[in-house]
């Protein structure tokens, strides 16, 4: 993966090759600037690699056009951001139901309510993001990521903007939802205790994998 800035081309990721089996939990760790988030973005099809290919669910996503990639993302990928990225003009309930609405499903409200209940926000369904705390916003984001029951869930520093108590709550919920929905979970984190809960840890440094360790639970 190469990015250009000004007249300089920066090699962010190189010689990356790995496979993740279904339902596995994989943590990607590494120092700042090692390319963790870029790798996650590539897996979500948010960026195009300059060379190589990525296969998810037997689909080469690097070969998909923009519109096909959007459709693929809707069906197969859930994403949780460090900065939550909720739509400020939609309520918690509407934010959660948004991925379904984008698929043309307009009856997702009940499912969204169930998910909000699962993350403990049943009393905050009609609140706007600005009326929610950081932890609550991230829980809404979790519910949103799971509403389409995607087989692959990607989480980018999901606790990075939260204090440790709230962070732990969010992680417990993340694990809980992952187990309930049988999804594959790939998360990027700085947090070693969080990484230790994963089945496998991939360590990145200067854009390349320096360690790939499987943990037994």
């Amino acid at each position: 993966m190469q990015l250009s800035a000004g007249n300089h081309a920066v090699q962010i990721l190189h010689n990356i090759s790995f496979e993740v089996s279904a339902k596995q939990v994989l943590a990607i760790v590494g120092p700042s600037g090692s390319g963790k988030s870029t790798l996650l973005g590539l897996l979500a099809g948010l960026d195009q690699p300059t060379c190589g290919s990525i296969h998810i669910h037997n689909t080469n996503i690097t070969a998909l056009a923009e519109s096909a990639m959007a459709h693929f993302r809707r069906q197969y990928i859930g994403y949780v951001f460090q900065a939550f990225h909720l739509i400020p003009t939609l309520t918690a309930l509407e934010n959660v139901a948004l991925p379904l609405e984008l698929q043309g499903i307009t009856t997702g409200e009940e499912r969204a309510k169930t998910l909000l209940q699962a993350v403990g926000l049943e009393k905050r369904v009609h609140h706007y993001p600005i009326q929610l705390s950081g932890g609550e916003q991230q829980r809404v984001a979790l519910a949103r990521a799971f509403i389409s029951q995607p087989p692959l869930l990607l989480a980018d520093e999901p606790t990075g903007n939260l204090d440790s108590a709230t962070g732990n709550l969010v992680i417990d919920l993340l694990w809980q939802l992952h187990e309930q929905h049988d999804s594959t979970l790939i998360l990027v984190t700085h947090d070693t205790t969080l990484a230790a809960r994963a089945q496998r840890i991939l360590t990145l440094q200067d854009g390349t994998i320096v360690n790939d360790a499987s943990l037994t639970t």
Binding site: E66, A70, Q103
Partner: peptide, 8 residues
């Protein structure tokens, strides 16, 4: 954000 959620 909308694009990451699958909107084309």
């Amino acid at each position: 954000t909308l694009k990451t959620l699958g909107a084309d």
